[in-house]
Design a binder for these strands. Structure first.
Lengths: 188, 188
DNA sequence: GTCTATATCTCGATAGAC
DNA sequence: GTCTATCGAGATATAGAC
């Protein structure tokens, strides 16, 4: 991916998050990226192409980050905890991107992403939970249900921690506490 | 609110959920509502006015429904459970409306809603949790944190249950189970 | 690959009769 | 209050020179 492409994606991210898909014309994206309107449409055939490319780019980045953190031979609890913590840190350090994912998720654009691609994104997490159930460390419940409960706790906790009024230096303590609660909930 | 107004809101809900804010022109809303373009703008000065009015209408309906379920002298656990269950049932029975709330939430329109109004919506839930902490029934944690954890579990469980592949006759059982897990997590 | 210039279209909003 | 008709703005996307 060349420089201009990155600039376009970066500008699109900023503007979409600030003004929504509707509220940001391609002309403004091009202007903020420092390229002409024509160049933007050289890289992305349509505006929707751009919206989707941005989503895929962010998802790929998040996926790469998380799998880089997946150490090896820790206990299951530790691996789950690391995954929990790093998801939160990534979200807190990349709030625009995290917001964009959710904005995209609640938009008709989501229909353009194939179900297989979406499923692939959570596969590694599902496997972790499956392993925990098989080893009788986690409650014997449907994998999807446990996964949903864990994920939604990440989302919820993010909302709590992302509040500008919340002191950043207390984040770690709250995350630790929240994971302890989560573990209490899902452990067998 | 007169008949035509309701028809406009109903059409707007259907279309916004299906095609997004951008993807649904006011002309289509008017057509689906069976009124003319001019009439739509008689009731709502701008398209954004309509978007916001729809949000407030849905929120009011949800608020009315939930407070109607708030019985009186049950135990705190039971009241919390009822609130949990009824939130879920409302969401499952009003999926378009629930989706719209979230779609609105992840859009720039949210900025047009005053923080006081948003805070008022969760006041009753916060009080319940506050009471639980004071009575030493719940973990001694920040009220907002516990509220966030409970809410996000509702959202997450909703996603799980709203999946068309999930058999509707097993909903109650899963909701019961999920509340038991939740209670295990937050009880002192 | 990048730009300028512009075609084409659609949408939100208004005017004014009834 | 409701309609028809329409204006003007601004959007996406393309054409074609460099």
């Amino acid at each position: 991916m060349v420089e201009k492409e990155k600039q376009i994606l970066a500008a699109a991210l900023r503007l979409f998050v600030a003004f929504g898909f509707h509220g940001t014309p391609t002309s403004k994206i091009a202007a903020q990226a420092g390229v002409s309107n024509g160049t933007l449409f050289h890289y992305y055939k349509t505006k929707e192409d751009l919206v989707i490319a941005l989503y895929n780019d962010i998802k790929a980045e998040l996926g790469a980050y998380l799998s880089a953190q997946t150490g090896g031979q820790d206990s299951l609890e530790t691996r789950l905890k690391k995954s929990f913590i790093h998801s939160l840190y990534w979200a807190l350090d990349n709030q625009d991107k995290f917001y964009y994912i959710q904005q995209f998720h609640f938009s008709p654009h989501l229909a353009k992403i194939s179900p297989e691609v979406i499923a692939a994104q959570s596969r590694v997490h599902l496997q972790l939970i499956e392993e925990g159930i098989a080893a009788q460390l986690l409650m014997p419940l449907p994998v999807q249900l446990l996964f949903t409960l864990v994920s939604s706790q990440v989302y919820g906790l993010y909302q709590y921690l992302a509040d500008p009024a919340f002191p950043a230096d207390q984040r770690t303590a709250v995350i630790e506490e929240a994971f302890a609660l989560l573990w209490r909930m899902i452990k067998k």
